[in-house]
């Protein structure tokens, strides 16, 4: 589909929405406008984008991005790709669940792995990881826990359950606690050239 034509049509049909062409997709510059743009694509007789195929996110260090791929099952065309950028420190984006039920699990997945908060989602919980998991593993700055090194709370737990802990591990945990650090795995840096 001609992305420039889609851009003009959305702006004509859904009011003054700031859109920017990024590759073969449209960036909705204000996240709050997303619902209006999606509503237009869904209802407009020219588009009838009734099928939200994929909702996914990506981390670009300066911002987080959600990418939506719309297709039409009725007219059998597509895709129209919309993207929304949100700040890392305030990642709030409107939810498309009221329009498309298909976004329900996918937005939960993005919340789980990227920490993007979808406002208006009926049941925004972690879907893969457990509820008290800390951090968002798909963000590029996420540091993984080192499973080999014990921390002081691990040692407390082991002591409570009567499991013998080697002295060296105990010293290492003390050291970490004093330094106020957590046992994090070193990030595997591969040759990116």
């Amino acid at each position: 589909m001609d992305i420039e034509k889609v851009k003009i049509d959305i702006q004509k049909g859904a009011g003054p929405i700031a859109l920017k062409t990024v590759r073969q997709s449209l960036l909705v510059e204000k996240p709050a406008d997303l619902t209006a743009a999606a509503q237009f694509l869904k209802d407009s007789p020219d588009y009838r984008m009734d099928y939200l195929s994929s909702v996914t996110a990506a981390d670009y260090l300066d911002y987080l991005e959600t990418v939506y791929h719309f297709y039409s099952m009725e007219k059998k065309h597509g895709p129209v790709t919309l993207r929304v950028r949100v700040k890392r420190d305030n990642p709030v984006c409107p939810s498309l669940v009221p329009l498309y039920r298909g976004a329900e699990f996918q937005e939960r997945d993005n919340f789980d792995l990227f920490g993007i908060i979808y406002e208006g989602h009926p049941d925004l919980r972690r879907v893969m990881l457990w509820d008290n998991f800390e951090g968002f593993p798909m963000r590029k700055d996420y540091a993984q826990e080192d499973s080999e090194t014990l921390e002081s709370q691990d040692i407390e737990w082991l002591d409570r359950h009567g499991i013998k802990v080697p002295e060296a591990a105990r010293l290492k945990a003390e050291e970490l606690k004093k330094a106020g650090k957590r046992a994090l795995a070193e990030r595997r840096v591969e040759d990116k050239t």
Partner: peptide, 19 residues
Amino acid sequence: TAQPWRYHVRAPSFINLTI
């Protein structure tokens, strides 16, 4: 580069569980 910056799988079984 030689590695993807972002790789995502749209898994049909996962989304079919919605309903």
